[in-house]
């Protein structure tokens, strides 16, 4: 059996890759994809602990279902905002969205 720590390490690595993408990428679509990666890392943790954790039960899987639901809603609204933003400002470069700066 694969030890629990391997799953937790995989989730941590995926989370950090997503976090790096959120912090550094300029295209807002890639930022949203990176957020989805981070949410997936959380889901791996939930399912792993629900399957081979110290107190394994079904609750982790139910919660990962809720996480997937919220992630889908977040992606839909985020991409709609992105399309509205592109229509108004003709760019999805995150560095150019600086209306509140000056």
């Amino acid at each position: 059996m694969v030890p629990l720590t391997s799953y937790l390490a995989l989730a941590a690595i995926l989370f950090c890759i997503g976090l790096y993408g959120v912090l550094t990428k300029r295209s807002l679509v890639i930022v949203l994809v990176s957020v989805e990666l981070m949410l997936n890392a959380v889901n791996i943790n939930l399912v792993a602990l629900s399957s081979i954790g110290p107190v394994a039960n079904i609750t982790g899987q139910v919660f990962s279902l809720f996480t997937i639901t919220v992630a889908a809603a977040e992606a839909a609204v985020g991409l709609a905002i992105l399309i509205a933003l592109y229509r108004n400002r003709k760019t999805i470069d995150s560095r150019k969205q600086d209306l509140l700066r000056n």
Partner: peptide, 27 residues
């Protein structure tokens, strides 16, 4: 910053004390 976070998390995971790995639960 992200590398430091990853290092801290991996250190925490590697030193994790899991009380007696239970058999795989199939939900």
């Amino acid at each position: 910053g992200v590398s430091a976070l990853l290092g801290v998390m991996l250190y925490g995971i590697s030193t994790l004390q899991i009380p007696a790995q239970s058999p795989q639960y199939v939900g």
